[in-house]
Amino acid sequence: MTEVKRLVLDVLKPHQPDTLELARAIAACGTGLRVNIGVEEMDEQTESVLVTIEGDDIDLQRVRAAIEELGGSLHSIDEVEVLGPVGSD
C-alpha cells in the first residue's frame, strides 16, 4: 500500500478565513500533519497560496474538501512524495 508523505498544492483562496485558519483546517484532516502555507500573490478579493503538507499518510480528498469548505479551490498539485510498500524480505 502506498502512502502520501508530502504534497505541495497551489491554492486560490479568499482573504477570509486567513492562512492560519486554512492551515488549521488542513492539519485537522489527519493525525500528525505538518502544514506550511506561503502567500504567493495577493489580489483585491483573493490570494494564491502554496500549501505544503507533510505527514505519514495524507488523504488528498479530505484536504481538498477542507480547502473547498473554506471557499478555496485547488489549482494544481505542484509536488508529491509517495512511499511505496515496504517489503519484509
Binding site: 479568499p14 478565513p17 478579493q45 473547498e68 469548505e69 473554506l70 471557499g71 479551490s73
Partner: peptide, 12 residues
C-alpha cells in the same frame, strides 16, 4: 467572480 467558482456549498 474573483474565485471563478460556485461557493454556495462553502462556508461563504
Amino acid at each position: 467572480e474573483a474565485m471563478v467558482a460556485d461557493l454556495s456549498e462553502s462556508a461563504h
